[in-house]
């Protein structure tokens, strides 16, 4: 198969949730000398992002997204096993819903999707204080803090996180991602958060763009 055919096959295998096929294509791509970053980014990764779009429309469901995400992780592990030098993980992200907010479905979706892209996820669960979230990020050497707030009454917790970050001199060192139904770019700008993510796919794109900047 040509490079383009292999990339297409990788995309199709993820979208069809076919792990064996996905790994076989990974093997073929190594034999053909195609860059793993191309295969992961344009093939498998693009498949995951497509499924993310379908999930957001109610056409694909979370368990399927999780299965696809695991296929992607196993493919990445296969490529890793072929390398003499272990590749650096793209980043470490602390995730939580903010204090007073138990709505954790969206955060769980972001966790699954970001994992599929190779990020290390430290999921603090739900209803965690701003101080706890920042402390967990510092303790774990995280690159990002991602918080979700579904309620207008809990949105100010994201502002609290920014205030703690500023006070502790962490702004710029650890980037912040904010999301949730009432959250907008305007809110992110207002509280000086680094990234506003409308959904899981947006989080993937924006975090990747910031990492490569």
């Amino acid at each position: 198969m040509t490079r383009d055919e292999l990339i297409k096959a990788a995309y199709d295998a993820v979208c069809a949730y076919e792990e064996e096929k996905a790994l076989e294509i990974a093997h073929q791509s190594v034999e053909a000398g195609i860059a793993e970053s191309d295969m992961l980014g344009e093939g498998y990764g693009a498949g995951i992002r497509h499924l993310g779009d379908l999930f957001e429309r109610g056409e694909v469901f979370l368990p399927e997204l999780v299965v696809a995400s695991e296929i992607m992780q196993n493919v990445a592990a296969y490529y890793e096993s072929r390398m003499t030098q272990k590749p650096k993980r793209p980043g470490k992200i602390v995730l939580s819903t903010v204090e007073g907010d138990v709505h954790d479905i969206g955060k769980g979706i972001v966790a699954a999707m970001m994992k599929s892209q190779g990020y290390e996820i430290i999921d603090l669960g739900r209803d965690r204080s701003a101080a706890d979230i920042v402390a967990a990020a510092v303790d774990n050497g995280a690159d990002f803090i991602g918080t979700s707030a579904l309620l207008t009454t809990t949105m100010p917790e994201q502002k609290k996180i920014e205030a703690i970050m500023k006070k502790e001199g962490l702004k710029g060192k650890i980037k912040t991602i904010v999301g949730g139904a009432p959250i907008t770019q305007r809110w992110a700008d207002r509280i000086h958060a680094d990234i506003y993510a409308e959904d899981a796919n947006a989080a993937i794109h924006k975090v990747a763009a910031m990492m490569s900047a």
Binding site: P63, V66, V67, E70, I105, G108, K115, D123, G125
Partner: peptide, 10 residues
């Protein structure tokens, strides 16, 4: 399940 699913425990 919001924690089980991201952990792959479908």
């Amino acid at each position: 399940w919001a924690e089980l699913l991201p952990a792959g425990k479908v």
